[in-house]
Design a protein around this nucleic acid. Sequence first.
DNA 1: GTATATTTGTGTTTTAGAACATAGTTCTAT
DNA 2: ATAGAACTATGTTCTAAAACACAAATATAC
Lengths: 233, 233
Amino acid sequence: MAGKKKDIIDLSSTLPDIWRMLTDAEREILRSSARIVHFKKNELLYLEDDTPKDLMCLFSGKVKILKSGVGGRSQIIRIIRPVQYFGYRAYFARENYVTAAMAFESCTVCMIPMELIEKFLRRNGNLALFFIQMLSVDLGIADQRVVNLTQKHVRGRLAESLLALKESYGLEEDGATINIYLAREDLASLSNMTTSNAIRTLSNFVNERIIAIDGRKIKIIDEERLHKISRMG
Amino acid sequence: MAGKKKDIIDLSSTLPDIWRMLTDAEREILRSSARIVHFKKNELLYLEDDTPKDLMCLFSGKVKILKSGVGGRSQIIRIIRPVQYFGYRAYFARENYVTAAMAFESCTVCMIPMELIEKFLRRNGNLALFFIQMLSVDLGIADQRVVNLTQKHVRGRLAESLLALKESYGLEEDGATINIYLAREDLASLSNMTTSNAIRTLSNFVNERIIAIDGRKIKIIDEERLHKISRMG
DNA sequence: GTATATTTGTGTTTTAGAACATAGTTCTAT
DNA sequence: ATAGAACTATGTTCTAAAACACAAATATAC
């Protein structure tokens, strides 16, 4: 893990969900234990099989959660946007990480020791419910993802990924271009297909006037059609 | 939902995990609120889009959790064995069910109102952690399942399902026959393949002396080879 | 216990998508 | 600024698994 650097950051505004649920004493402990860490593009935040130690909260930048599969072929399991918490599942399951996390672009992460979080939520029902709810939502998404990735065809999966990227990272000032700079390979890994197929299908979408591409920048022209393709599979 | 019938059951021995974490007063409330319900083979415990109301604990029998996908094609997302808790994710996520639950065979389920569980765990850190841990483990399994179902080939997926069934429901007295009576269609739905492919691959396994089949009963002859096939994909 | 429906088994055809090949283009590091 | 690496694009071939078809065997209902 590289690029550590301590910053002065107002945790009350950057960790709104958790901060709100703590007592003053807990806030003081949190303030002194939390670390702010920077990562450069393509740096790993944690590795598969690492022991989870910290709850992470992405302050800025974009992060992908990866999982390596059969024959080392890795796929993107989910993407993290500011301000989202991540990296805590394995600790709670008493496992080592089964995924890795990598920065799509340079980012800032707040790290809070999981022991602290566990101690807090043991006596704070609201905080416990907060984590229960996050896990429950994520589990629902994971179940949905199983069905989507196994049943939808290439076009449906790619359409879905484009919509998910738009949902997570939003659009640029033009109100149409997805606000992320992504290699075709990443788009493929997110949609569970080969890079060739991502490229081919992307240019089909261009021909059909559903999207427009300028290098890695993708502009959504006909979102309704994208939704339809995603729904139909 | 059909087949309700009240029984006298010793909750302290049938709900060991949760019971152990409660105070006497809470136990009394739980005792008076919990209902025991029977379901016959193929009966639905809950439906997709139902509003979740109860935490369910499977006392006896076998249950499958289903999710309908593209074009109504449904697949088995996970299987429940005694004594496992289920049906609570959607409540915590403040969603309706995105899955359905069906009895593989006749079964007995304990239903506990989720409002009660939420109240208890708000002031009981251990209980909260219990749910956090269950969700965390299940989320890890779901992530693994995404990779397995999308990257492994038919043989690998079927081998994996057979091992999962053995893990969940165990073996019969002969120490080799998987203790579940399952249609090929269910086996296919669990392994994300067509029924034809499940049948075909199953008879390939028979020819290779990896398993033996007698109607719907499957006997594992060479478990090591099954593990290997599952691992290789 | 018999009739009907469902499930199982197997062969054949079709197809989506992977694998491979190769060229042009765009990053990125020095 | 330039060389080398990585990425993008597109055509071609190959293959795993779906789709389809039908007969035989079992289950289930009456």
